[in-house]
Computed example of a mutant assay.
Amino acid sequence: MTTALKTIKSLAPLLDRVLVQRIKADAKTAGGIFLPDSAVKELNEAKVLAVGPGMMNKEGKRIAMGVSPGDKVLIPQYGGSPIKVGEEEYSLFRDHDILAKINE
């Protein structure tokens, strides 16, 4: 199930949720050959666009998020909540579902 929005800026993640957009794989080989869409594999890398404020622990203190907007992360192949805005696709994941942060 996907949710349709007019603009991605109208979406603010709550609690420990992270809004990401998958990074598209190159459709061109190193030798300059263009690949058809069916041959291009979807990457597990994504860019973090927005994060929620974090969950509350039992004492009522907010648990800091592991990622911040602009980070490049590794996400699971499946899962998350898909969101479609126009032709662009985004996903919402929980902070603990993010596999790793990619430091460049």
Rank of each mutant, 00 (worst) to 15 (best):
M1P: 10
M1E: 15
M1T: 07
M1Q: 12
T2K: 14
A4W: 12
T7P: 10
T7H: 10
T7Q: 14
T7M: 08
I8D: 06
K9C: 13
S10K: 12
S10T: 12
L11I: 07
L11K: 07
A12E: 09
A12T: 11
P13I: 01
P13G: 03
P13C: 03
L14G: 15
L14E: 12
L14A: 15
L15Y: 08
L15W: 10
L15G: 07
V18A: 04
Q21C: 08
Q21I: 09
R22G: 04
I23H: 06
I23V: 11
I23R: 06
K24V: 15
K24E: 12
K24Y: 15
A25H: 07
A25V: 09
A27E: 11
K28D: 11
K28H: 15
T29D: 02
A30M: 06
A30D: 15
G31A: 11
G31Y: 09
G32F: 10
G32C: 09
G32W: 07
I33E: 10
F34K: 14
L35R: 02
L35A: 02
L35I: 03
P36M: 08
P36T: 04
S38Y: 04
V40W: 04
V40H: 04
K41L: 10
E42Y: 08
E42T: 13
L43F: 08
L43D: 03
N44R: 08
N44F: 04
E45P: 04
E45H: 06
E45F: 05
L49E: 08
A50R: 11
G52A: 05
G52P: 05
G52W: 02
G52N: 03
P53H: 07
P53L: 09
P53R: 11
G54N: 06
G54R: 06
G54W: 02
M56N: 13
M56E: 10
N57A: 07
K58I: 13
K58T: 11
K58F: 09
G60T: 06
K61S: 15
I63K: 12
V67E: 01
V67P: 02
S68E: 13
S68Y: 12
P69W: 02
G70W: 02
D71M: 07
D71S: 07
V73P: 01
V73W: 01
L74R: 13
I75Q: 00
I75C: 00
I75L: 00
P76E: 05
P76F: 05
P76Q: 14
P76T: 05
Q77G: 10
Y78L: 10
G79P: 02
G79N: 00
G79V: 00
G79T: 00
G79E: 01
S81C: 15
P82N: 12
I83K: 01
I83T: 02
V85W: 01
V85A: 04
G86R: 05
E88N: 07
E88P: 12
E89P: 03
Y90I: 00
Y90Q: 01
S91H: 09
S91I: 08
R94Y: 06
R94D: 06
D95Y: 03
D95P: 04
H96F: 10
D97I: 01
D97L: 03
I98H: 00
I98M: 01
I98L: 01
I98E: 00
I98Y: 00
L99Y: 15
L99V: 11
L99C: 15
L99D: 15
A100T: 08
A100Q: 06
K101E: 05
I102L: 11
N103S: 08
N103D: 09
E104M: 13
E104A: 14
